[in-house]
């Protein structure tokens, strides 16, 4: 545990080297920390606050305000269901419900095995393919409940193959 804390501090220090000590660098720094670590650990936020000379609670405020930041580690695969206007009209909620049902998690949660995290996003800009789901960086269009099963099944199969190979 102590070792992990050390690693986090080191990563953050490395990132902070590229920035001047000014409050206006807060969001770019947090963004880079999250890109590196996948989320914003408490230790990282403390380190950033210390380096930029601002209260820790202000860093926490910004980290909890913006959609981009997450305070817990994400799943290995991120499923983002588009909730833009066109997707909503074409059944985005139905797709989201299906994922919740299949993965047995609520939106914003990660499956207990850490495989999938399920999120809502506002418009990914592929309205003509509505409803759209983004799995990791791959855009899936016209997602019906049957397609939801298909997407998850393809991951399961992929995993099984992986296991057989190992």
């Amino acid at each position: 545990m102590e070792g992990k804390k050390e690693t986090i501090s080191n990563y953050v220090c490395e990132i902070l080297k590229n920035y001047s000590v000014e409050r206006r660098n807060l969001l770019p720094v947090l963004r880079e920390v999250q890109e590196k670590l996948g989320y914003l650990p408490v230790r990282a936020m403390e380190k950033v606050a210390e380096a930029l000379g601002i209260p820790t609670v202000d860093v926490y405020g910004a980290a909890t305000f913006f959609n981009l930041f997450r305070l817990s580690p994400p799943g290995k695969h991120q499923i983002k269901v588009c909730m833009g206007t066109a997707c909503f009209m074409a059944g985005g909620q139905i797709a989201l419900d299906s994922f919740e049902r299949r993965l047995d998690v609520r939106t914003g949660e990660t499956t207990p095995d850490g495989e999938f995290s399920l999120e809502e996003v506002a418009c990914v800009g592929c309205c003509s393919l509505a409803p759209v789901v983004v799995v990791d960086d791959f855009v899936e269009g016209n997602v019906t409940p049957t397609r939801v099963d298909g997407i998850l099944l393809s991951w399961d199969i992929g995993k099984k193959k992986q296991r057989e190979q190992d």
């Binding site: 000014e22 409050r23 206006r24 660098n25 807060l26 969001l27 930029l52 601002i54 202000d58 405020g61 910004a62 305000f65 913006f66």
Partner: peptide, 8 residues
């Protein structure tokens, strides 16, 4: 505000 390092 967000560019200055605060909440939006």
């Amino acid at each position: 505000n967000s560019m200055e390092g605060g909440m939006g």
